[in-house]
Design a protein around this nucleic acid. Structure first.
Lengths: 152, 152
DNA sequence: GATGAAATAGCATTTGC
DNA sequence: GCAAATGCTATTTCATC
């Protein structure tokens, strides 16, 4: 935790994670501060990087992406150059909506969306030709728990 | 795609996914509509469910959660009751910030955050005693690609 | 059926305390 | 961090295409 957060900050973070689509005045009422004070708090949370950004979260299926998969990836080689090639490939593919290096049974975990099966296959083929030795596809069937706030 | 989206809608979705922290007037200028028209569009996108919500995305480490893991889960039993028990357990655990049923080598994929190793272990133990037969932990090391907009 | 322009009420943001 | 003040913005209304 690189930033000191008091109770009001924590409360603001909870509220903003749940619903950032509210006026500053409304937030101020919730946390019991003046609008000016609230504005300063929120600004500081953004500036310090605790709040990375405010975004709209879409329903992937409603937005035209009925296929969502987790892709677990093992690389064929593990030198820095192979890693970078893979990273750049992943960043350049719009269907990959998140990706992380991980420690465990595999090397990387990707989240991929696609409009149909052929598009998904394109993604798989491209990753295979860019260093992925083993790709395990986990098709997202149903949400157990939606993207939730960090329990600050 | 359950909703018809024209070019202006698509443009709005792109902008809102990237940065929802802007005034309606600013959005209106970007998409080339009047503020009133833009407001109607955005409201409709929210009402139809394409936009699920507007939220603050935090930096997990900055917010006090240096440990983030993907947990792949295989259940011991697969009857409806075991599934429900597991679902309810997961929903009730604040450290689980997202969870999905998947088709593939495993049954479910979870995203978990923790303040330290003991807290992570607590999560693992609890899941084990609530139906998880096999738990594979993938520790998030480094971001390859941050949470990105759907490529609408 | 949706847009644009005008009008009002309310808000964001600044300044001084 | 608060209170007051100003300049904009959100939001509604109504005419319009």
């Amino acid at each position: 935790m690189a930033v000191k957060l008091d109770d009001v900050d924590i409360l603001l973070l909870r509220e903003l994670q749940q619903d950032a689509d509210r006026t500053n005045v409304e937030l101020a009422r919730i946390v019991g501060l003046s609008p000016a004070g609230t504005l300063n708090r929120v600004r500081r949370l953004k500036e310090t990087g605790v709040v990375r950004r405010i975004t709209a979260r879409l329903d992937p299926a409603q937005a035209g992406f009925p296929l969502q998969v987790y892709l677990s990836v093992t690389l064929a080689r593990h030198d820095p150059r192979a890693n970078r090639t893979f990273e750049e490939t992943v960043r350049a593919m719009p269907q990959v909506i998140a990706a992380d290096w991980v420690a465990g049974e595999i090397d990387a975990m990707l989240l991929v969306v696609a409009r149909d099966v052929p598009e998904l296959q394109q993604v798989l083929v491209r990753l295979s030709t860019r260093g992925a030795q083993r790709l395990t596809t986990l098709l997202r069937l149903e949400e157990i728990k939606p993207a939730s706030p960090l329990p600050v």
